[in-house]
């Protein structure tokens, strides 16, 4: 499923450019896949955070995304934008650490940028994500190279935009590379920045969780590529 491009198989899907039409169910799948990934990797996130932070990133992210999963299991909002805004709001109110407002802002601003459309293209998503990521940068006062989640998100959205919103696999790979590249960086924002040079040599937990979210996006996309929008409510497992 790596980098699946829907219209490379059979050509013109519907009468126009770009392949995808991403609906609310797709975005709910993305959030659920994110919750799965965060739960799976929570111990690793906490381990990374214990090296340069306060060892709560895995637990905080899991608490937040399980709350998102629970919310979406009850009801999936009608539009892509509303799904992300609901999820972002839930993260702000449940995470309890800095990742709450940061990821909450990412999803809320991305969702707001998607507007009230019932279906969006991959290109729309790339544009909206850029808006969301810029809002995160502004909130945290951080830039590329500061050893933060932005070091995974900036390359991911660039890869997605470069492919015209088509190549989710490339976005996933770019995020993963970006997270790996935080290892030699010195932290300039957040708790890790107090460590100064001692933050060098550790992979950033926030960049790592950001890469998980982008991987979940590619995974949600892969699931969709299989059949044309049949499997609706696969993972409603109550939490």
């Amino acid at each position: 499923m790596s980098g699946k491009v829907t219209n490379e198989a059979g050509g013109s899907g519907e009468g126009g450019s770009g392949g995808r039409e991403l609906d609310a169910a797709f975005f709910a799948r993305w959030m659920t896949a994110s919750a799965d990934a965060v739960a799976r990797e929570a111990d690793r996130l906490t381990e990374l955070d214990s090296a340069i932070g306060d060892a709560d990133h895995g637990g905080n992210m899991r608490r937040g995304f399980e709350a998102v999963r629970g919310e979406l299991a009850e009801e999936v909002p009608g539009t892509p934008g509303a799904v992300l805004m609901t999820a972002g709001r839930k993260l702000v109110s449940t995470v309890g650490g800095a990742s709450g407002p940061l990821y909450g802002t990412l999803l809320r601003r991305t969702g707001k940028a998607l507007g009230s459309a019932e279906r969006v293209s991959g290109e729309d998503l790339a544009d909206a994500l850029r808006t969301g990521i810029d809002a995160v940068a502004q909130l945290g006062g951080a830039a590329a190279g500061d050893k933060t989640m932005l070091d995974a998100l900036f390359p991911a959205v660039a890869a997605l935009a470069d492919s015209g919103g088509e190549d989710f696999g490339a976005a996933r790979d770019a995020a993963e590379r970006g997270a790996e590249e935080t290892v030699p960086m010195q932290a300039r924002k957040g708790r890790a920045s107090y460590l100064g040079e001692r933050s060098i040599g550790h992979r950033d937990p926030g960049a790592t969780s950001a890469a998980l979210l982008v991987a979940a996006l590619a995974e949600a996309d892969g699931a969709e590529g299989g059949t044309a929008g049949s499997q609706e409510n696969d993972s409603s497992g109550s939490e």
Partner: peptide, 14 residues
């Protein structure tokens, strides 16, 4: 500090 700052900023912005 930290999340206290970011949470209040987010509440004010959003």
């Amino acid at each position: 500090l930290g999340s206290a700052v970011l949470t209040v900023k987010t509440l004010l912005a959003e």
